[in-house]
Design a binder for these strands. Structure first.
Length: 831
DNA sequence: ACTCGGTTGTTTTTT
DNA sequence: ACAACCGAGT
């Protein structure tokens, strides 16, 4: 029964003779100009049509097939085009079979797009590109093939984060640790970080080990790995680490794959983490020409081509190591480095603004993008100020409606935010305006409760040893199989080293359980037995439906009278529908564990709202970037935890944001934002200050926004409509600028009447100094509040009100106009 | 087994 | 401010 997965074509199932001499290859179409001789092409032969329209650098990146190549592709310079054309070129010139090209991307979306574009260029040949995919999907394919070398069976289960956390929680409890003090969630992150670095339990730093679970970090990690093995399961990290282990420990297999992959291509190389890097190195590295080296691959060139942009490295926080791209030439001596600097996306102003901003980063390879289009009508990058986030949303809503009136499509407009909580305000506003919008990257279809439950049923049917699935659904719907029953099943299973479903099958034969539980469990066991048999005979969509019906799962939701129940049933139907596209239930499960996305309705004309992170790789005519305030962007936590690198990554994020725009880019910042429920006064992002005046314009402040704002506007630094450079000249701003190299984070409340400017920067770290005494956060020091209950106070946003409660420096105030709010005492004054 | 109330943590996200 | 999660109590 572990036979499955025939649907996955392994490379060695193809005839795939290895092309000994490029010229001898079957792709006869391009025979004459094949290979080696660029000169030949220059001499006479016409360019193949797929090479038309490439600029000289792009052409070089496509045609430099021998040896290591690093393509530094700035934003909008045709990176994907180069990558896909290069593959088409390799295929068309017959240098390799599709199965001999390894092409890795980070996301399924990128892989899908690449596959489409190649087939467009090169015809159906790509159907046989089995090694084009994400790091993880390629890892799975490899691992299914060689599972036994790491003590797995080839039908292993892939656990998602949720499963992992539940598993870890069990292990933490089993160690006798308090799972509140040592949250499984946190440990899952630690494991993830270790795996990103390619570390086995015995390789993790001692300090890391000590940092969790009373020094049991390593022990728990080991226990976790063992548990995965008995569950015949992998987490996402293992999909890379196991292949690395296999390649390291089995020179014959390594040699085989090194031989196999004539050409390696890597997309978004700046995002690779250490484990991915190790994996690539194993496959790409050749022993130095060396007589003792055995087989044929002795001194071959490594045809690896990595494409990336160090300025767009924004995933350091999840283990990506920019150094990988910065180090490329050292790793692969003799590498050809090609810069793509001609931008086909954005106006000169957008490039000028983003280029100047990113130039503030150190430690970059350095590119200067240029464009050939210089339309005098091009708008500069605009900077807008708003009083608070509410007004920001309102004004942006108006801006969008105006664009729409001028004929823009909503699909061409995107709002890119730093943090997802910012999205809500826009959604609220757009709902009242009746403006279509779509949120990209919200909660995913496959992460929904009902979908995961249903998937657990399917998993257990396909893989009876999947204990995590078992525990998830054994009492869902409620069957009277509570904690006690599960615990005894668990003990029974563990003591005999058998799966829990098998334990259940045993135990219903005994007298151990209470009659009620026993009967209930008996039914469950019977059901699963039956479903497993039907797996071979019944069409999988039908079976899936049957499972959800017979288990009582759909009934459970039908009986549920809460508002979301109908939606959940709808989702379940959708789940079954989507199974149709797959050959088998197993194939479907594999798809879901790796490709956790459901597509959106592309036909609807709607504004896109998403985070800056998920905007990478996309482009829009009109880009709106709200929330450019210190503390939010750059994010305080990035500064606290990442120091200078953190700041630079934030700056790259800003760069990514601006460069998404083709024609118009509007940046916003507000003076007041509610963070964790408290209104805080904010100062403009330092990134605004880093924009060049020549390409940026500060929008005139619009008067007469509703509400209380008028008076407050008197203090806005944009009020006077001064030229850009002097716009940031308020005392607070200057002080912030002055302090930012030394001061570290302060809390924002103070009693001086001045707003304290936050500030964290430099290497000082969270425990660093605070230079100016008056900036020290006073919230820790319990001084008596200068306010008393009943005081009449004035707040710059809310107007007048009475203090109704005091907690430290937080005041609860009943405002005459704005109702009850909690604010920091630094922002109100007695009247 | 379910509800209630107190506690906690609120950047970014893939696979 | 707020939601999500956990443990205790009915």
């Amino acid at each position: 029964m572990t036979r499955g997965f025939d649907d996955i074509p392994f490379f060695d199932e193809e005839p795939a003779p290895r092309p000994a001499k490029p010229q001898a290859q079957p792709a006869a179409a391009s025979g004459g100009l094949a290979a080696r001789a660029l000169a030949a092409r220059n001499a006479a032969a016409p360019k193949p049509s797929y090479l038309e329209g490439l600029n000289p650098e792009q052409l070089r990146a496509v045609e430099t097939l021998d040896g290591p190549v690093l393509v530094l592709a700035g934003a909008g310079t045709g990176k994907t085009r180069v990558l896909t054309t290069r593959i088409a070129h390799i295929l068309a010139t017959g240098r390799a079979f599709p199965s001999q090209i390894l092409a890795v991307t980070f996301t399924n979306k990128a892989a899908r797009e690449m596959r489409e574009r190649i087939s467009h260029l090169a015809g159906a040949a790509v159907e046989g590109m089995p090694w084009l995919g994400t790091f993880h999907s390629i890892g799975v394919k490899f691992l299914r093939r060689h599972a036994e070398l790491v003590s797995l069976k080839s039908d292993f289960t892939i656990l998602d984060t949720d499963d992992v956390i539940r598993l870890l929680k069990q292990l933490i409890q089993a160690e006798g640790l308090d799972d509140k003090r040592w949250p499984a969630r946190q440990f899952a992150l630690m494991i993830d970080n270790w795996k990103n670095k390619g570390l086995d339990p015995d390789q993790i730093p001692e300090g890391d080990s000590r940092a969790f679970g009373n020094g049991k970090g390593r022990q728990l990690y080991t226990a976790y790995q063992n548990r995965l093995k008995t569950l015949n399961a992998c987490d996402f990290g293992d999909l890379l680490l196991h292949p690395i282990r296999i390649l390291k420990n089995n020179p014959d297999i390594l040699a085989d794959y090194r031989d196999r992959f004539r050409y390696i291509l890597v997309d978004e190389y700046q995002d690779t983490n250490t484990a991915q890097y190790m994996w690539l190195r194993l496959l790409a590295q050749r022993p130095r020409a060396n007589n003792t080296a055995p087989s044929s691959h002795r001194s071959e060139t490594v045809n690896i081509c990595c494409v990336g942009d160090d300025d767009q490295a924004i995933y350091g926080w999840r283990g990506a190591d920019v150094d990988n791209i910065l180090r490329f030439e050292k790793d692969f001596p003799g590498a050809t480095v090609i810069r793509l600097e001609c931008n086909y996306r954005s106006t000169a102003h957008i490039l000028g603004a983003s280029g100047h901003l990113i130039a503030h980063n150190e430690g970059r390879l350095g590119k200067t993008l240029f464009t050939e289009s210089h339309d005098p009508d091009d708008e500069k990058v605009m900077v807008h100020a708003a009083w608070d986030s509410e007004e920001e949303a309102r004004a942006i809503g108006e801006e969008i409606e105006q664009l729409q009136r001028r004929g823009a499509k909503l699909n061409d407009i995107a709002i890119l935010v730093r943090a997802s909580f910012q999205m809500r305000e826009f959604e609220d506003r757009f709902v009242t305006l009746g403006l279509n919008y779509r949120v990209i990257g919200g909660p995913r279809f496959y992460e929904r409760l009902e979908i995961r439950d249903a998937m657990a049923y399917f998993r257990l049917v396909c893989q009876p040893a999947d204990d995590l699935a078992f525990e998830r659904i054994i009492n869902t719907p409620k069957r009277g199989l509570g904690d006690t029953t599960v615990r005894s099943l668990h003990d029974y299973a563990r003591s005999r080293d058998i799966p829990m479903l098998a334990a259940a099958a045993d135990m219903v034969e005994t007298e151990e359980l209470k009659p009620k539980a026993r009967k209930s469990l008996f039914d469950v066991v019977q059901n699963f037995r039956r479903w497993s048999q039907l797996l071979e005979t019944t069409p999988h969509t039908e079976l899936a439906e049957q499972i959800l019906e017979e288990s009582g799962y759909t009934d459970m939701w039908k009986a549920d009278k809460t508002a979301e129940a109908p939606g959940r049933l709808e989702n379940l139907k959708e789940l079954i529908r989507s199974m149709d596209a797959f050959e088998s239930m197993r194939g479907f499960l594999e798809h879901v564990s790796l490709v956790m996305d459901a597509e959106q309705n592309e036909n609807l004309d709607a504004v896109s709202i998403m985070t800056l992170h998920s905007a990478k790789g996309l482009e829009f005519e009109n880009v709106i970037l709200p929330g450019w305030e210190e503390g939010l962007f750059p994010h305080q936590r990035a500064l606290d935890e990442g120091g200078r690198n953190g700041l630079e990554e934030e700056r790259r994020l800003a760069y990514v944001g601006i460069t998404r725009a083709k024609r118009r880019c509007h940046i916003w910042f507000v003076s007041n934002r509610r963070i964790h429920g408290l209104w805080q006064s904010t100062i403009p992002s330092r990134f605004l200050d880093e924009l060049p005046e020549a390409h940026v314009e500060v929008a005139e402040v619009e008067q007469n926004y509703g509400g209380y704002g008028r008076n407050a506007y008197g203090q806005s630094r944009f009020d006077r409509q001064e030229p850009f450079a002097s716009s940031y000249s308020s005392p607070g701003w200057q002080r912030a600028q002055q302090n930012k190299t030394d001061a570290t984070r302060t809390n924002w409340g103070n009693r001086s009447g001045l707003s304290v400017e936050r500030i964290g920067y430099g290497e000082a770290g969270p425990t660093g100094r605070v230079i100016q005494g008056e900036l020290v956060a006073k919230s820790k020091v319990e001084t008596a509040s200068a306010f008393a209950v009943g005081d009449r106070v004035f707040h710059i946003k809310f107007g007048n009100g009475n203090v109704s409660a005091i907690e430290g420096n937080k005041l609860t105030i009943d405002f005459d106009r704005a109702g009850q709010k909690r604010v920091l005492d630094g922002f109100v004054e007695k009247v």
